[in-house]
Design a protein around this nucleic acid. Sequence first.
DNA 1: CGGTGGACCTAAACCGCTATAGTTCGGGCG
DNA 2: CGCCCGAACTATAGCGGTTTAGGTCCACCG
Lengths: 340, 340
Amino acid sequence: MARPTIADIARQAGVSKGAVSFALNGRPGVSEETRRRILGIAEEMNWRPHSAARALGGAKAGAVGLVLARPARTIGVEPFFAQLLSGLQAGLSAHSTALQLMVVEDTAAEIEVYRRWASEHRVDGFVVVDLQVRDPRIAVLEQLGVPALVLGGPGRHGTLPSVWADDREAMISTVNYLAALGHRRIAHLAGLPAFQHTQRRIRALRDSAKRLGLTEALSVPTDFSDAEGAAATRALLTRSRRPTAIIYDSDVMAVAGLGVAMEMGVAVPGDLSIVSFDDSTLTRIVHPPLTALSRDTFALGEQVARTMLAAIADPEAVHDLKNPTPRLTVRESTAAPRPE
Amino acid sequence: MARPTIADIARQAGVSKGAVSFALNGRPGVSEETRRRILGIAEEMNWRPHSAARALGGAKAGAVGLVLARPARTIGVEPFFAQLLSGLQAGLSAHSTALQLMVVEDTAAEIEVYRRWASEHRVDGFVVVDLQVRDPRIAVLEQLGVPALVLGGPGRHGTLPSVWADDREAMISTVNYLAALGHRRIAHLAGLPAFQHTQRRIRALRDSAKRLGLTEALSVPTDFSDAEGAAATRALLTRSRRPTAIIYDSDVMAVAGLGVAMEMGVAVPGDLSIVSFDDSTLTRIVHPPLTALSRDTFALGEQVARTMLAAIADPEAVHDLKNPTPRLTVRESTAAPRPE
DNA sequence: CGGTGGACCTAAACCGCTATAGTTCGGGCG
DNA sequence: CGCCCGAACTATAGCGGTTTAGGTCCACCG
């Protein structure tokens, strides 16, 4: 038989389609005995619900949408996203919900996809990442009326619930650590200035520097690419009074920076300490392994999945959720600076 | 209005639902004038098709499935997949087809997902990667009757069409290059032996070694992880007569190997030449940058997308498609071995 | 002038499932 | 004994499209 439908099961069981539907969905309306019989037949016929038919009756689509706006060729080396994705996956598939993924060129295209998927009933909710400073997506999502969850914050994200971690706190603890080692000139290779978390980290560094009385604490914005990470590192290391420590906003940039240091004959950690704001295999496989802010990105993904599913079930009941602050994992790329 | 349906449009236009459907899908049955009027109204009402309703009528689901079987926490740093994914994305979304992604623990779970998605009509076809030696997925997919496309080959993949690149040829050219530099003891850190492409590369190395009369050409199987890559490298470099060149089956392992060499004080490329079988940003950001086999993985993804869509349109018309052989990009990690 | 055929549409069935308004029937109660 | 009620089902109406079997109307032909 091609594809059994509940009508087939009903015929086989000698009951109506409605009874079968009741039985299969565990709702009252059939006796325990009949339910068992129907479930048995369904099992035997290897029946599975037709997702489209379910979705049509106004029910759930059984999928969550994630749209990433970045030039298509660049999701190359971003362990963070890959990890997040796995966690999200795991969390969703535990409740047999699928992840609908799409990579687009820019935010305008991203918004267009939100509109389309929402009106096509293709997904039950959206996960939004890379929160921007004045994020145009927020208003659109609020208006679409589809549950949406923001990854990132705190900060302006309208009425949408969010899952976030305290990267201000993380930055402060990192600077404290470097200052305790004796560093007085610290540089920060930041990410895209349009992102809220970039701004938060820059501010945290500035505040820390003031409080600790550091000689220098410079944030250099980049586009997160290895190329800009390398170029900015080269520029910093060429200056007459170069920083003794650099904090990189991503592992990819940190590794690229390490490469530049080696190429220029700058010893790590002897002449330069390096800290990565993201941890991943990447920071561990290079030599020396990098001191980094670790967090369980996979678990974060699962967390997001759980919260998303809760938001789908009842949008009112979900509120902002704070994740553990990333903790510094000290490896071999940081040390006290050489005495001048 | 909540969500316009074709019935709303029909009412507005004063025609039947059927006429609207004809008009919107560009099929004969309505006059050019009426069609324009209907399209105008649909545009004005901001109508979008309800994907579930479409799928229900036996039509396409508008999505392609990709299931990856790997322990969820490990898709961390695999630039190859990320790149492939972007290309796939780009190719599919150009024909407004979505990508349904799922990461599962093992092949058994993967097969279960194929079954479920096929019977739920959730996707129109599958892309299969990581072809194994005796791959149990092939038979299942053939039997499910859903178009499926294998990435990898040549080799046994039943009647399913495939898109592949010649990694035998690539391995041979790499070994030729190293031999020309003067290397006589070459090691190969291979991937999982269960994969067809691993076997092909191992065989290619063995054949090359025999033809060129190399002193040693050893393939060491690993699980593709950075940890095993590092461990195997350490073991190789500890031997009394160590290899003068190592070919790594993935960029992650190559970078990990480079880290081990540095840690052990083995100069690259002075004492050891390193070649990576995958190219990515990763191989470029480390120091020294690694010689690697490059291919346009993004383009490969697009290619797969195109072929997949063709297979969905007409499964009969699609045949195996060979992609350009990866070409060696020489960087600074390879050089002639020190004279003994 | 009846018949024919094509262009343009309409009405209605159908896809698989859910939701809801009956219908049947057995049993408790006054 | 008749009445009412709840449990267990059945019958049926959608959900939003696509598709197919007609139904008109009109030009054209013999």
